[in-house]
């Protein structure tokens, strides 16, 4: 009887901590798995695995980081089972401030309109998700934690169990790769009102 009461209390406590994390967990899982069904499955599997390990969680410590660590490890284990060779990042990176340089060269900074806004008016959220999905795995994982939840570098390092400097450099390179992809998307998409809506194209509304 006492065991049953303890189990129920543990489960209630676990669910209380877990419920507010659904948006974050799904957002990160979506960027990692690159599709909604796999993301849902990953969140579910993580919830089960984390519950089984809940006795190892130290109350008062960071539940979100603990849960996301399990989620990313579960993902990486699945990926490693599928592929023997890890993805290798393209060395063909964009230079620093790639987008700013492009908009300047193309005269976008001369008007009153905010050039960053002009770029994002041409890129839909789905395309943005696809741009992150196109990142090599090591950058994608860091970018997922960074963009979905604005986690500080140290927290990302704790989740991934890697040095802070690794997070910093992966994020820096990941941003540059993202900027290059965003610019490619912008070039494929005409400005609002200049062409009929095309497939994946003119995204005047986010």
């Amino acid at each position: 009887m006492n065991d049953a009461v303890t189990t129920l209390a543990t489960k209630q406590e676990y669910e209380r901590l877990l419920k507010p994390l659904m948006r974050i967990a799904f957002g990160v899982a979506l960027h990692l798995t690159r599709n909604r069904d796999d993301a849902e499955d990953l969140v579910q599997e993580t919830a089960i695995q984390a519950y089984r390990a809940f006795h190892t969680f130290q109350p008062g410590t960071h539940f979100k980081a603990w849960f996301l660590r399990i989620l990313t490890n579960l993902f990486l284990n699945k990926v490693r089972k599928k592929q023997r060779e890890p993805e290798v990042a393209s060395l063909d990176e964009a230079p620093d401030l790639f987008l700013y340089t492009q908009v300047t060269l193309n005269g976008w900074t001369k008007g009153n309109e905010d050039p960053a806004k002009q770029i994002l008016e041409r890129v839909g959220t789905e395309q943005m998700v696809a741009a992150i999905a196109a990142l090599p795995e090591e950058f994608r994982i860091v970018a997922a934690l960074y963009f979905v939840e604005e986690l500080p570098y140290q927290e990302i390092a704790d989740i991934l169990d890697c040095p802070l400097g690794t997070v910093r450099s992966r994020l820096h390179r990941g941003r540059k790769l993202l900027q290059r992809t965003l610019w490619e998307l912008v070039q494929e998409t005409p400005p609002c009102g200049t062409a009929p809506q095309s497939k994946g194209g003119n995204r005047c509304s986010p």
């Binding site: 579910q44 806004k117 994002l120």
Partner: peptide
């Protein structure tokens, strides 16, 4: 420019739609 770009990307990526029945599926599992 970089600040605005980052803010807008985070704003959009932070409000990705979560499946409405996800929590039910998790508790069921």
């Amino acid at each position: 420019f970089e600040k605005e770009l980052l803010a807008q990307m985070r704003e959009r990526l932070g409000r990705l739609e979560t499946p409405p029945d996800l929590w039910d599926r998790v508790t069921q599992a």
